[in-house]
């Protein structure tokens, strides 16, 4: 079969990213502009600001990609874009740009689910084998999914309240750390010990997650210590939190492996960049002889290469979108 080149655009949150991906697994080029320094001072992503910055940056990112790859955009086979979930105003810019490219060069337009993009980031590192368990851990999602084939998702468990990444961000704010919270909590945790007693999330046999109790536990603890004029050891608290949150994910993952007896596992989403989580998952995979796929760090956070990887299977199925494509901010996995 002839090679398939997909130009992919991702603008669902605070990264403007464009990539060219060959056959769903080889990155020809990737250019990303991150707005993290801009949103940092506000303690989180400001949606209107994010949308303004995508509008300003998108041509620079596209130009940088075409410049450094030397790729003639007329030679792509399709253009793919994240349609959701994400921030409406941010998604919109990528979608309009993708429509223009699709129309000008008469190429099919492919709408990609951002979460499925995170799952297929694995394809850029190691080919998926089915059936596989997929653990999705990000700022907006915490899911355990069973995939029997490409684009076949059976949700085994989800978070009942906060996503794990959300809990990291909240704890970061309580500890006075900068946005994005996850990497900063992890860095601090490395310097501490798990000395604090915190609420352990629901200890049951379901595959659902809950992090709100743990989060509130930390908020209360910090508040109480402040009232007693006792100093918080931030590194110890960060370490205590991270251990409990990650151990909970590992416990559910172990339960899922035992329940399903599936021997393939992939990890997806921004929190999969967490070093402690990666180590724990590797230990678990070793214990159960599970074939583990975990994306390269550069494909764990939001990027367009993963969108190009996920779009490949939609291209093969000819699952194309029209020029009236709109953002779907709350799009679910199915």
């Amino acid at each position: 079969m002839k090679d398939v080149f997909i130009l992919a655009i991702e603008s669902s949150c605070d990264e403007t990213s464009i990539a060219i991906v060959k056959n769903g697994n080889e990155v020809v080029g990737l250019s990303t502009n991150t707005q993290i320094p801009v949103h940092e001072k506000f303690g989180g992503v400001v949606p209107e600001l994010a949308s303004r910055m995508h509008t300003e940056n998108i041509l620079y990112v596209l130009d940088d990609l075409l410049e450094k790859t030397g790729f003639n955009i007329a030679n792509i086979n399709a253009v793919a874009v994240t349609c959701g979930p994400g921030l409406t105003g941010s998604l919109l810019i990528g979608i309009e740009a993708a429509k223009v490219i699709s129309y000008l060069f008469n190429k099919p337009l492919i709408a990609v689910n951002h979460i499925i993009g995170h799952i297929y980031a694995n394809q850029l590192t190691k080919a998926l084998s089915f059936p596989t368990l997929a653990l999705i851990v990000s700022g907006g999602h915490t899911n355990l999914v069973c995939m029997k084939d490409n684009y076949n998702f059976e949700i085994l468990g989800s978070t009942l309240d906060d996503a794990i990444g959300e809990a990291f961000d909240k704890v970061a704010r309580v500890l006075g750390l900068k946005y994005p919270g996850g990497p900063n909590v992890e860095a601090l945790a490395k310097m501490g010990n798990p000395t604090y007693k915190l609420p352990i999330p629901m200890n049951n046999q379901s595959l659902d997650f809950s992090f709100s109790g743990l989060k509130s536990g930390i908020v209360n603890l910090v508040h109480n210590e402040e009232q007693r004029n006792k100093e918080i050891n931030k590194a110890d608290l960060a370490c205590s939190f991270q251990n409990i949150a990650v151990d909970e994910v590992i416990r559910k993952l172990e339960l899922a492996i035992k329940k399903t007896n599936i021997k393939n596992l992939i990890v997806a989403g921004g929190v999969s960049a967490n070093g402690y989580l990666r180590t724990k998952i590797e230990e678990l995979a070793l214990k159960y002889s599970v074939n583990l796929g975990i994306p390269d760090l550069k494909y764990c956070t939001d990027n367009a290469a993963m969108i190009g990887a996920a779009a490949y299977y939609l291209y093969l199925k000819q699952d194309f979108s029209d020029l009236d494509l709109q953002p779907r901010p709350n799009k679910s996995l199915n």
């Binding site: 509008t55 810019i93 223009v100």
Partner: peptide, 19 residues
């Protein structure tokens, strides 16, 4: 309207750049 303007401007600058 912020969103309205962004749609037209994004389309226009992409067309100008690509052509």
């Amino acid at each position: 309207s912020f969103t309205g303007v962004r749609v037209g401007v994004t389309i226009a600058k992409l067309i100008a750049y690509l052509l």
